[in-house]
């Protein structure tokens, strides 16, 4: 299989795009996809400070990397969920990433913000872990952005996340949530913010 751009050996096949790329041209393609999406949906501008919510995983750190390389003003936000060694390892990855790129990383501890770490919240609420975690994180991300003066919060997802959300809405018969699975926000003006 050959790279669509240079004809060299491909490392990744993207069936959705009917294309394959070598490593350098995949990165180029990926960065271009993000830049085009930001522009097409008027997500934010280079004048706005962006708080990138990072988990230490590939999706969020890739997003932060792309935004830094594209010249945006960014800082990271790591929410320490208090999930034992998993949270320690994740935080270390975020700190190492921020240090390697000379970026600020804000750290918020969920246990301090809501009174207990996620495993305890999950037991107390008897909600699925992802549900308890998701509710807390969304609130804390927005709060941290407002506290630190970032008008934009960016989160990294992939199509797995989108597909899981869509399937969940279908399986629980929530037709209103199946509509408009595209970026949505109020109309923006030059001075408006999108936190």
């Amino acid at each position: 299989m050959k790279c669509r751009k240079c004809g060299g050996a491909a490392a990744l096949e993207l069936r959705r795009h009917n294309a394959a790329f070598c490593p350098p041209h995949f990165l180029e393609f990926f960065r271009k996809q993000v830049a085009e999406a930001v522009h097409r949906h008027q997500m934010f501008t280079r004048e706005e400070k962006i708080m990138v919510a990072v988990s230490g995983g590939k999706d969020s750190l890739a997003l932060w990397d792309v935004l830094i390389e594209d010249g945006y003003q960014t800082a990271g936000l790591y929410l320490d969920l208090g999930i034992f060694d998993y949270s320690k390892e994740s935080k270390a990855k975020c700190q190492a990433f921020a240090a390697s790129r000379g970026q600020t990383l804000h750290i918020e501890r969920v246990a301090e913000a809501v009174g207990a770490p996620i495993p305890v919240v999950q037991q107390a609420t008897r909600r699925p872990t992802c549900s308890a975690c998701g509710l807390s994180k969304r609130y804390l991300m927005n709060r941290a952005a407002l506290q630190h003066g970032y008008p934009v919060v960016a989160t990294g997802h992939n199509l797995d996340d989108e597909a899981a959300t869509l399937f969940g809405s279908v399986m629980h018969w929530r037709p209103t949530r199946c509509r408009g699975n595209r970026p949505r926000w109020p109309p923006r003006t030059r001075s408006s913010s999108a936190a």
């Binding site: 988990s55 995983g57 999706d59 999930i83 998993y86 992802c130 997802h157 992939n158 797995d160 996340d161």
Partner: peptide, 11 residues
């Protein structure tokens, strides 16, 4: 395996 949203086995 390609996965998102945390490590397998995470509570």
């Amino acid at each position: 395996p390609v996965m998102s949203g945390g490590r397998a086995g995470t509570p």
